[in-house]
Design a protein around this nucleic acid. Structure first.
Length: 352
DNA sequence: CAGTCGTGGTA
DNA sequence: TTACCAAGACT
């Protein structure tokens, strides 16, 4: 089957099966000439990096309601943006989101550049996101390559070379299929297909719009593709977290440095996370072991966090962190591992 | 350029 | 319970 026939089949399927998402302009409106707001496309694509549609929806709604355009976001307080992002993960995205908004506001007059190459120069916008914004919001025939596209191409053309070695080949195949007409709809069609029918584990080939030209299906190896090189096992690290509350209700918290794990986020003072961490409380006190530990898994290690609590005497001058009054503290501003520690301490104290 | 960087859902 | 995974970017 010709590439054009495959592209046509994908587009026809998209026109009747496109998933409804808050940031999308549906195929009917798109065919009538409507293009989506670049701000909404950018916001959604950054949030969707390594993140499911289900998880993104509410964050997208809250961000766009609170900051309706890139100029408003550029003027936002850093802590407010980090707090609003809390729980979504990969916090460098939030820092880069704000950086990017300020570049667009200050250097581009609040108007997003409309080419893939220019978008690629902005913070937090890499090859995938630049192509996604250019094709979806600006109708440029840029090729989007994400995990879905890689999987669909690997199967459609039976590429048996494992990732990431096969990435250039899969990219070339995806470029070959990208049409000049409605390239953004095509990109979303392939991603929708990968997210629903051409799924990682048990693809629903029986209802696939491109089942007949699929080379992997002909060979019966679709569920085995794309092959991937094995990944290293995750080590377990240990640490201590110190939760201190003053009699006025203020909690001792610290803003983590911008670089590294949970960068820019609020957290409890704590030890290093290692095989054998040292106890490093933020001030001397009778720290109470709550007798339960937080278990949390990051991308490349497991963490077991022992939680210590103490009442901070009035006038306590901690070695690290700042006391934040209850009126300014929302547990929802915390990244998940820190919120787990808070919840655990609360439930333990309530039970006592 | 291989390692770093979150989280919640799922089999 | 564990392992894998999801619309990647940055260093």
């Amino acid at each position: 089957m010709r590439d054009e026939a495959v592209s046509d089949a994908l587009l026809e399927w998209y026109d009747t099966h496109a998933r409804d998402m808050p940031w999308r302009v549906g195929p009917t409106a798109r065919k009538a000439g409507v293009l989506p707001d670049p701000y909404a496309v950018w916001m959604s694509e950054v949030m969707l990096q390594q993140t499911t549609v289900a998880a993104v929806k509410e964050y997208f709604q809250r961000f766009t309601a609170r900051w309706p355009n890139v100029t408003a976001l550029a003027a936002a307080d850093d802590g407010d943006v980090m707090g609003e992002w809390a729980g979504l993960g990969y916090y460098a995205r939030a820092r880069n989101l704000l950086k990017c908004a300020r570049v667009v506001a200050n250097d581009y007059g609040g108007v997003f550049p409309n080419t893939r190459d220019e978008l690629l120069t902005l913070p937090g916008i890499g090859p995938y996101t630049a192509a996604a914004i250019a094709s979806i919001a600006f109708d440029e025939a840029a090729t989007v390559v994400d995990g879905n596209v890689e999987r669909v191409m690997a199967r459609l053309f039976a590429v048996e070379t494992p990732l990431p070695t096969s990435k250039p080949e899969l990219t070339a195949l995806a470029e070959r299929l990208t049409p000049l007409q409605r390239p953004g709809c095509h990109a979303q069609a392939v991603m929708d297909l990968g997210a629903t029918i051409c799924s990682p584990k048990s693809p629903a080939c029986g209802i696939c719009p491109v089942q007949s030209p699929c080379a992997a299906r002909k060979k019966g190896i679709q569920a085995e593709l794309p092959r991937k090189l094995p990944k290293a096992a995750k080590p377990t690290r240990y640490g201590f977290a110190y939760l201190a509350q003053r009699s006025d209700g203020a909690w001792l918290l610290e803003r983590r440095p911008d670089k590294g794990l949970l960068g820019g986020m609020l957290g409890w003072p704590g030890s290093e996370w290692s095989d054998a961490p040292q106890e490093t409380p933020p001030f001397d006190a009778n720290w109470h072991d709550i007798g339960a530990e937080v278990r949390h898994t990051f991308t490349h290690f497991h963490l077991r966090l022992a939680v210590r609590v103490a009442a901070a005497p009035d006038g306590t001058n901690p070695r690290t962190g700042t006391f934040i009054p209850p009126s300014d503290f929302r547990p929802s501003d915390l990244p998940t591992v820190m919120r787990k520690a808070f919840d655990l301490a609360q439930s333990t104290l309530n039970a006592a």
